[in-house]
Design a binder for these strands. Sequence first.
DNA 1: TAGATTGTTAATCGATTAACAATC
DNA 2: TAGATTGTTAATCGATTAACAATC
Lengths: 217, 217
Amino acid sequence: MAMHTVESIPLPTIRRYPSYVAIVHKARQAGVTHISSTAIALELGLEPIQVRKDLAACGAVGRPRRGFALKELLKALNKAMGLENTREAFLVGAGNLGSALAGYKGFERWGLRIVGLFDSSSRVIGKRIYGIEVLSTERLPELAHRMGVRLGILTVPSERARQAAALLLAGGIEGIWNFTGVRLQVGPHVVVEQVDLAASLVALYNKLSEQKERRGE
Amino acid sequence: MAMHTVESIPLPTIRRYPSYVAIVHKARQAGVTHISSTAIALELGLEPIQVRKDLAACGAVGRPRRGFALKELLKALNKAMGLENTREAFLVGAGNLGSALAGYKGFERWGLRIVGLFDSSSRVIGKRIYGIEVLSTERLPELAHRMGVRLGILTVPSERARQAAALLLAGGIEGIWNFTGVRLQVGPHVVVEQVDLAASLVALYNKLSEQKERRGE
DNA sequence: TAGATTGTTAATCGATTAACAATC
DNA sequence: TAGATTGTTAATCGATTAACAATC
């Protein structure tokens, strides 16, 4: 069967899609049926041409003078983001950040469901956090296989990052959402998305000082 | 006084600096005095040439055959990141994520001290979170001015993002670390660093499916 | 000395932005 | 129709990567 290869969408474009979705929802609630790239750009502080390029990438088609039909646009964006099916994830490290993520309802909207919490500390194991019991990390690999869970969320202290990642890999996990600053060594079968708060903080400092320099120290 | 303009460092480079610092610390504990770009690259999964470019940008100078002196390198990195002085921040939105950030000790290492917690919900106001009392958001602008706080951390639900940002701006804040998905409209005097978890999650999905495609569906 | 490593200069690559014809 | 908006094709820009001479 000849499968026509879908043009792969640049990652920076993909990252902007959630904010486009937010705008589309807002427009829907305002009662309109279409939205132009200009309007989206204005709202997000982007260039209209960039919005059009991004939307073209997901296959959305607009109409001159009207813009993009909200319903169609939403469908195209969701499809491009891979939000058609829900994904289940295990979270390792039920500390402050881990608990916060486990308690955050908003991820359901982005197709993520946290179905297991793991920790290595006996002070936490057995407790319930937002209705989910915290299990010993020892049980992770077997459960991951049995439940067919493919995503891992890593929120352990950085000293334990490697160790925890090893458990996820042993469980056959395919993708890791890594909130530790540690760069993980994973094989070619596994992908990692890094959320690096230290990097972000330092970027903020830099923007601040650049900005001050711009207007004379 | 003729001030020689410092070459501004690319943001992607700045964002990698914290992970370089982590490697340098690790090397120090291992008892060595120098480290090569090759060694750093190997550890982080980068190209040696990129590491050298990055290190050159912060003014670090290495020696052929030896690499970079850890002590000097650390000093140069810290300076480039602007970590010489500590920065105080107010956090708005003492929910799950906000509390987690307030409780995270690791930020001190990156020069950040959270000195005020604010929330609009009377169920939270007056409570103490990790030793800091949660105050009413109403008091934020005045306190920010009085205490000279210049950084704001935004962890409110997205519906209240604009409103909370307005309070920070009223308080004369210069930089916002924004954990809401909402793109804030701030004037030219204020910088925003976005931590967009939805964007990150969607990027992870994309990497997953790209990866699967690469090895035949 | 030989060879590993730095640092500079040039080439490549990918994303953003610009220009403009097509369209409703 | 006139004019706003799309979408394509080309130009620009910035970061990454390559090539290689300099250095210890």
